[in-house]
Design a protein around this nucleic acid. Structure first.
Lengths: 176, 176
DNA sequence: GGCATCGTTTAGTAAAAACTGAACGATGAT
DNA sequence: ATCATCGTTCAGTTTTTACTAAACGATGCC
């Protein structure tokens, strides 16, 4: 019998293996939504863990480097998906998952989406503006094509406004 | 003066340059949402173009290969964002943008999101099931840790159900 | 002060995704 | 039937993204 290392590394039980599987699946989900695989894995790890975890512990558990852990944990913080928990007498950083999805959606997800949409909205406005007939032009001066395009741009602008209204209303968060 | 090519390639006007800029920005937007840059550029091109465009025309306008154009156009078709328009007496494939965003959201976007979410929901169920105390166990047999994790998993399952309900209701599409 | 430990930054590497060119099969024209 | 043209497939390449190792700065400890 080989001498066991100090760090307990017993065979994982079925339950623990299932938790690991859950973590991997979470990574796949976030990845499917274009958010990278690590962010989902890390959040799941913290979400499934009662009590805070140190940064290094997170890194070893997920089998990633400290650098990646540091980078990803800050993304999660930006999204309000994770909280930094100071532990007195310990210089290390501990983190725990925000379990109130409502908060994550309200303070993290929706603002992020709105920001991305706003630049799109700006562009719609710019293009629409570039197509407005100048004062010197007679009405009906622009070609039918340009008129059609402007109509479509207006429809896009309208969609953008409605979307933004839904996202900034508390409608969505109240449903969850 | 070099002899001009047959294909008219006059200097683009300010308006045309702005349209081009719009197309690029659309690509950035879709890319920001994890959908690839081409899909946004291509949809924008078609959206801004009155009347259908041939596949090759799309490729040359976007300065991409026919292969990419073919692949991307099919993605757009899957999302109901683009329609194939047969032109009698022409073997080429012509496409036009679906301008009713409502249709794209209902038939393309939401089903896609729901599909991705469902696999996540399955995994939650599996993990939860793996943690249910077996009948032989006394009640209170599982450790407090396991109980807490199960509680969280149930919360996740609840969120998933609510999300799915919102996405499958016609609430969202009616708002746009 | 010097030492040890932690998190971050940076520059480089590995992995993944996007894109292309060429070959192919299909379809219609002559 | 032969040829030309179009869209798709597939293997290979380029570009982008994700990740790491190592150096660094900061902070507490002796």
């Amino acid at each position: 019998m080989p001498s066991a290392p100090a760090r307990s590394k017993t065979q994982p039980s079925t339950w623990e293996k299932e938790l690991h599987r859950f973590i991997e699946a979470s990574g796949n989900t976030t990845h499917a939504f274009g958010l990278g695989r690590l962010i989902g894995r890390m959040y799941a790890l913290l979400y499934l863990h009662p009590g805070p975890l140190s940064l290094e512990r997170i890194a070893t558990d997920l089998e990633i480097s400290k650098a990646s852990a540091s980078l990803t944990i800050r993304q999660l913080e930006q999204w309000h998906a994770v909280r930094h928990v100071p532990v007195s007498g310990d210089r290390r950083h501990f983190y725990e998952a925000e379990t109130a999805f409502r908060v994550i959606v309200r303070d993290g997800l929706l603002p992020g989406i709105r920001k991305k949409l706003s630049s799109a909205g700006d562009q719609i406005g710019r293009t629409l503006h570039a197509g407005t007939p100048s004062a010197s032009d007679d009405r009906r001066a622009s070609t039918p094509d340009v008129q059609l395009i402007r109509k479509r741009l207006k429809a896009a602008a309208s969609l953008h406004r409605k979307l933004d209204a839904v996202l900034s209303s508390r409608l969505l968060e109240n449903l969850l």
